[in-house]
Design a protein around this nucleic acid. Structure first.
Lengths: 208, 208
DNA sequence: CAGCGAATTCAACGTCCGTAGAATTCAACG
DNA sequence: CGTTGAATTCTACGGACGTTGAATTCGCTG
């Protein structure tokens, strides 16, 4: 008799080895926020998806709002990704075409898609996510714009950026969230060719 | 003492005259769904905004899902609005410019704004709203497209429509939901001039 | 091996939710 | 005037939610 009351492992307590629960929770949170938006996602469902007790979520991240903030922290710094992408532009492709191609490459990269969907889905419901998205867009668009903004009337710059934002935002939502058939199935190159000139127009064209 | 137990009007029971509660509930639902999305909006908050007991909401519309469906029923039939708008196109403006101008006029019309926000906010969270939005966009875009689709390779038609959808969707979200400053403040005419040529490109331009 | 801190679960609290049923009042029609 | 049906509120149930505190186990340091 080896103390049968202790033989059945009590389920509580710390686990052996590196469980990776903290990361698992964050990934589960991204998926749930992406699928249901901020209100629709529940801590209990996130915990279940991560194979973990709901209280552990609270232990690591405190409140739901803080977990959301942590989940929205982009795995890629936008400014870095942008400048890196701009650096390797091939000659022969316009800046607009290159921007679309780079954005799609970034969005298609593994691990980014969930964050993107979560961000978009939540941005329309949570003001915090909306602010984050506005900041991200401003940073991601004003950079390229500044590099070609000579000769255009300066007070129109933010207007141009906002126009670009509408097209890129619509592309992201249509392709990754709403699933507009043809746009969701088209290849990044096809889309870059179709949409690139539009971005060029907003960058430097005559918009008044 | 004039029967004090009866003097205080019991709060239950039917009210005199036409209370308009059913309509009030629907309008309150639109506002709440617009502000919080499908999950975030609560029947109790909708009832409170309508000045009504939550049970009355249930009495009129049954379940929350059915109330949502009723609230999403557009006050304007899209096909009617579209054909009416197309009819009165002024000469000298391109079809794309006219589409943007008409869409903005429709969106700015009183009573439409709430529905639009509710639709957009919910479309990214509720699959039903997403389907409604896809249908609406298909109907609203394929019509104008068909009127100029001669000479373009026919299997690209739905691709063109989807591209237009991304730009119009991005415009609506950026202007009415996320509030991209310059785009939110610009006049419909300004936007029509800036964006119209983009729609023209997607309608008939070279996109491959 | 003793002890401390971190990880993990359990059980529970209080709150809000959507919904249901019964009760009450009004309007309309005979 | 009596009856019927619709409008309206009250009360309440069961469930899910976010959060908390205590208890348990592990890893690490000395």
């Amino acid at each position: 008799m080896t103390t049968p009351a202790h033989r059945t492992r009590s389920r509580t307590g710390r686990r052996s080895g590196d469980s990776g629960s903290k990361v698992a929770i964050l990934e589960a949170a991204r998926v749930q926020f992406a699928e249901c938006g901020y209100h629709g996602a529940t801590i209990r469902a996130i915990a279940a998806r991560a194979g973990v007790d709901p209280a552990l979520v609270h232990h690591f991240y405190g409140t739901k709002e803080r977990l959301f903030a942590a989940a929205m922290e982009l795995p890629v710094t936008p400014s870095e990704a942008i400048t890196a992408a701009l650096a390797k532009r091939e000659p022969g492709s316009s800046l607009g075409t290159h921007m679309v191609r780079s954005a799609l490459a970034l969005w298609e990269s593994p691990g980014m898609r969930g964050s993107l969907q979560a961000m978009l889905r939540s941005a329309l419901t949570s003001e915090q996510a909306a602010a984050t998205l506005r900041d991200f867009m401003a940073e991601a668009i004003l950079g390229p714009l500044a590099s070609v903004a000579e000769g255009t009337s300066p007070d129109r710059t933010s207007y141009r950026a906002a126009l670009i934002a509408t097209q890129m935002l619509g592309l992201a939502v249509g392709r990754y969230v709403l699933g507009f058939g043809p746009v969701a199935e088209a290849s990044p190159d096809e889309l870059a060719i179709a949409i690139g000139p539009v971005i060029d127009r907003y960058l430097t064209g005559d918009i008044s």
